[in-house]
Write a protein that binds this DNA or RNA. Structure first.
Lengths: 115, 115
DNA sequence: TTGATATTTTCATAACTATAGAATCATTGG
DNA sequence: CCAATGATTCTATAGTTATGAAAATATCAA
C-alpha cells in the first residue's frame, strides 16, 4: 500500500463514526474560528474524555487542527485535508467515469461557490 | 443520527481499510463487467475467506453489487453509491466553502469527463 | 451421480475501537 | 501560591473487526 492510500484510509476511518462525523460537520459550520473542546462536547452531548478520544483520532488523521487560547483548546476543520480526500476518491475510486460523480454534483457545487 | 448519516458512515467504514479500498479501486478499473471473487482474491493476494469477509462488508454498505455467473460470483462497483457519498461529503462536510473543494478539483474532473 | 471448481460460512483467536469515571496536567485570576 | 477551570491521559471493560484454516454450500461438466 502506498503512503497516500494509507492517509486516505486514516481520514476515511476518522469520519466513519457517528460522533466524529457529527463533530466534523459541527466544525465546518463553526468555520475558521473553530470551537473549544468543551463547547463541542456539550453540543454533541458526549463526556469530555470520550470527546477527547475521538478528536485525538481525527487530529492524528489530519482532518482537524487545534490551537490553544487560554485554558481552551480550539479545534477547527482542515479543509485542505477534506479537499484532498474528495479529490482522491474522485480520481482513484471513480476513474473519471461520469457514472460515478455526474456533472450535477460538480456543477451544482460550483454554482454555489460562485454565488 | 439521521438515516442518511448512518448510511454515509457505513460507506466510509467500508472504504476505510487497506484491502477494501484496494478492492474498490480494482472494481472501478474493471468497469461494468466486474470481477469474479476468485480473481479479486488473487489480484489482492488475500485468502478466499478473508476476501469474502471484506466484500460482504462492502455489499452490506451498498458500495458493491453482485451477480452470479455459473460458479462465479461477479462483483462490481456501485457508482451511484460513490456519487452519493461524494455529494454528501461536499454538502455536509464542506458547506459549499471553496477552501474545502476548490474549483480545480471539480473542473479538472469535468474536463476529464468530456474528453 | 460424482468429482471438481468457486465461493461462502463457521469458528477460534488476536487485535483494535469505544466508553466513561477518575486522576492528572495546563492555564489563569485573585 | 492557590483554587478554579478547561482539557487530556489513564484505566478498565465491553464491543467490534480482522484473520485464515476447515467445513459447508452451490454450480457445472462428464
Amino acid at each position: 500500500m502506498d503512503q497516500t492510500a494509507a492517509k486516505v484510509i486514516e481520514a476515511l476511518g476518522a469520519l466513519a463514526q457517528e460522533h466524529r462525523l457529527a463533530l466534523f460537520q459541527l466544525l465546518v459550520e463553526a468555520g475558521g474560528s473553530g470551537m473549544a473542546a468543551g463547547a463541542i462536547a456539550a453540543a454533541l452531548d458526549v463526556p469530555a474524555s470520550s470527546l477527547s478520544f475521538h478528536i485525538a483520532h481525527m487530529e492524528r488523521a489530519g482532518i482537524v487542527q487545534r490551537l490553544r487560547r487560554g485554558r481552551s483548546l480550539i479545534y477547527s476543520a482542515d479543509y485542505g485535508a477534506m479537499n484532498r480526500l474528495i479529490a482522491y476518491l474522485m480520481e482513484n475510486c471513480c476513474n473519471g467515469d461520469h457514472r460515478c460523480v455526474d456533472a450535477s454534483t460538480c456543477s451544482t457545487f460550483e454554482e454555489r461557490q460562485i454565488t
